[in-house]
C-alpha cells in the first residue's frame, strides 16, 4: 500500500463541469480537485462518460460549461496556443496504447523529444532507450508496435507519454485487456514513477484491484444521475460511502447479488486480496 499525503497543493481543479455531445448530456456538475502527487482515479460503470471526462482534461473535447484549471491556470478559456503550451506539460496513455504503428518504439518515444528539444539524434536515441528501460522494455528499441504484446504496448505507451517528463500523466484504462500479473506490474510501474518523479497520475479505470492498490483519491461518476456521486480515497468509499451504489460497485456488487451462484468466485482476479 502506498502512503501518500492529501495535504499537498491542488494540481488540477475542475469546477461545475458539464460535458455533452450536442444535446446529449454525458456528465454534469463535476467538481473535484487533483492534488500534486495524487494517484487520482476516475471511476464508474461502463458508459458513464469516464473517457469523455478524460478527453476534456487532455484538451481533445471542450466542455459545455465549467472550468478546468491546471496549477491555477484556466485550461479551456485561453487562447489555443496557450492551451497547447499547457498540454506540453502532460502525457497521455491511450486505451489502446495508440503507438504510431509506422514507427519503432524508439522512434515513438523519440519523436516528441526531437520536436520539443534541441537534442541531437544520438542523444534522443539514448534518452528513448532510457525511457524504454524504465518501463522494462530495454532491448526493444527497434521493434514495431505490432511485434510486441498488448502489455508491452501499454508500457511503451507510458514511455512515450513520459518522454517530455510531464507533470501529470493521464492513463485511459491502463489495465484493460491485460492479464492479472501484467496489470499488477503496470500498477507497480505507475506508483514507482509517481514516487520517483513526483508525477501526478490521473487514471480512468474500473479495475477494482488497481483502484484499491494504487488510488489515493478518486471521483465516482454515475451513468443514471449523470454526475459524480462520491469522491475521496477509494478504500474509504468502499467501506464508508453513504451511497449504496458506490459501496456496491466497489465491493463487486456483493451487497446486491444474493440469488444464484456467485459468478465473481470464478473470476481470476480477487480484489480483496490485491487490495490488502
Amino acid at each position: 500500500m502506498t502512503g501518500t499525503t492529501h495535504t499537498s497543493s491542488p494540481h488540477i481543479e475542475v469546477s461545475n463541469l458539464d460535458l455533452s455531445y450536442g444535446d446529449f448530456v454525458i456528465q454534469k456538475n463535476l467538481t473535484f480537485t487533483v492534488n500534486h502527487g495524487d494517484v487520482f482515479i476516475i471511476m464508474g460503470g461502463s458508459g458513464c462518460g469516464k473517457s469523455t471526462v478524460l478527453k476534456c482534461l487532455i484538451g481533445l473535447k471542450s466542455p459545455a460549461r465549467g472550468i478546468v484549471r491546471f496549477d491555477g491556470a484556466d485550461f479551456w478559456s485561453t487562447a489555443a496556443s496557450t492551451r497547447e503550451a499547457m498540454m506540453r506539460r502532460f502525457g497521455v496513455l491511450y486505451q489502446s496504447g495508440a503507438l504510431w504503428s509506422s514507427m519503432t518504439l524508439a522512434e515513438n518515444v523519440g519523436l516528441p523529444l526531437g520536436e520539443y528539444t534541441e537534442l541531437g539524434a544520438a542523444e534522443i536515441r539514448d534518452l528513448a532507450a532510457m525511457k524504454l528501460a524504465l518501463v522494462g522494455l530495454a532491448g526493444f528499441e527497434d521493434f514495431y508496435p505490432s511485434e510486441i504484446s498488448g502489455g508491452m504496448q501499454k508500457r511503451a505507451g507510458i514511455a512515450r507519454a513520459m518522454a517530455l517528463d510531464p507533470d501529470v500523466l493521464f492513463l485511459d484504462e491502463p489495465s484493460a485487456g491485460l492479464d492479472p500479473i501484467s496489470s499488477k506490474l503496470l500498477d507497480d510501474l505507475i506508483v514507482e514513477l509517481r514516487d520517483s518523479l513526483g508525477t501526478t497520475m490521473v487514471i480512468v479505470t474500473h479495475e477494482l484491484a488497481s483502484i484499491f492498490s494504487i488510488g489515493t483519491n478518486s471521483v465516482f461518476l454515475d451513468p443514471v444521475s449523470k454526475t459524480m456521486i462520491a469522491k475521496g480515497d477509494p478504500r474509504e468509499l468502499r467501506d464508508h460511502s453513504p451511497d449504496p451504489n458506490v459501496r456496491e460497485f466497489l465491493n463487486r456488487g456483493a451487497s446486491a447479488m444474493t440469488k444464484g451462484p456467485d459468478p465473481a468466485r470464478t473470476d481470476s482476479s480477487r480484489p480483496t486480496e490485491a487490495a490488502r
Partner: peptide
C-alpha cells in the same frame, strides 16, 4: 482511418503535432 481508430491521431494532437 485506421490511425483514427487506434487513437494514433489523438496521440499526435495531444503531443502538439
Amino acid at each position: 482511418g485506421t490511425m483514427q481508430v487506434n487513437e494514433e491521431i489523438d496521440a499526435f494532437r495531444t503531443l502538439g503535432f
